[in-house]
Amino acid sequence: MNQTTGNDRYLAELMRSAQDGDGNAYVVLLHTITPMLRKAVSRQLAFYQRQDVEDVVQDTLLSMHAARASYDPERPFLPWLWGIARNRAADAGRRHARRAAREMTVAEVPETFPDPGANISVDDYRDPEALRQAIDGLPLRQRTAMELLKLHEMSLKEAASVSSMSVGALKIAVHRAVATLRDVLG
């Protein structure tokens, strides 16, 4: 018996145990196959960056996890795993080719946006006191929604429980508050 056959039987037994609900066997299986996958994918996709190889490895592990019930414990494990890895590598290659076809290389990345309104620096921003006064002048529900969601950065769920307003009411109040503030602040 060669080492590959023995290793395959060991991995098949781990997968069989994992299919039977043994979480520890699954952890050992993952820890055993991950370096093997990393090495195989690195060889297959030698032109990829390390993080791209890691993405393919993780995609392979996720696919294996999703398809683990389809593995037949009477069959060799490694060919089944390598089939999944080949498919994920092919998917990654297609994504890479599509992305490369759409990307355009530029000599210098602009630091600002083409829309001049989006390029307001902190120093150009209007008076913070005027903003505070404008917020204070909002109706109570709008002011409360703005303070909780925008100033205190609460989630909608948190703000709803604190303010006794529904999530929908908070969204509407913020929308109206922003419109009012745009009008007031010009």
Rank of each mutant, 00 (worst) to 15 (best):
T5K: 14
T5C: 00
G6N: 12
D8F: 05
Y10R: 08
L11K: 03
L11D: 07
A12H: 01
L14D: 15
M15A: 13
A18I: 10
D20H: 06
G21R: 01
D22N: 15
G23S: 06
A25T: 02
V28I: 14
L29E: 13
L29S: 11
L30K: 09
H31G: 12
H31T: 10
I33R: 03
T34D: 15
R38T: 02
K39Y: 09
S42I: 02
S42Y: 05
Q49C: 08
V53D: 00
E54L: 01
V56E: 13
V57P: 00
Q58R: 11
T60P: 01
L61Q: 11
L61Y: 07
L62I: 03
A66D: 08
A69S: 10
A69W: 05
S70I: 00
S70A: 08
Y71E: 13
P73I: 01
P73T: 07
F77N: 04
W80S: 10
W80L: 02
G83R: 12
N87D: 13
R88P: 04
R98E: 02
A100P: 04
A100E: 14
A101E: 08
R102Q: 04
E103M: 10
E103V: 04
T105A: 12
A107P: 06
A107L: 06
E108I: 00
P110C: 00
E111G: 08
P114G: 02
D115G: 03
P116H: 02
S121Q: 10
D123Y: 07
Y125A: 13
R126W: 03
D127E: 09
Q133Y: 01
P139F: 06
P139L: 07
L140M: 08
R141A: 15
Q142K: 00
E147W: 12
K150Y: 03
K150D: 05
K150Q: 04
H152A: 14
M154S: 11
L156I: 07
L156G: 10
L156N: 11
L156V: 09
A159I: 14
S163L: 03
V167K: 14
V167I: 12
L170W: 06
A173F: 05
V174I: 07
H175N: 15
R176V: 00
R176D: 12
R176F: 02
T180E: 14
L181E: 15
R182C: 06
R182D: 15
D183K: 07
D183M: 08
L185I: 13
L185A: 05
G186S: 08
G186I: 00
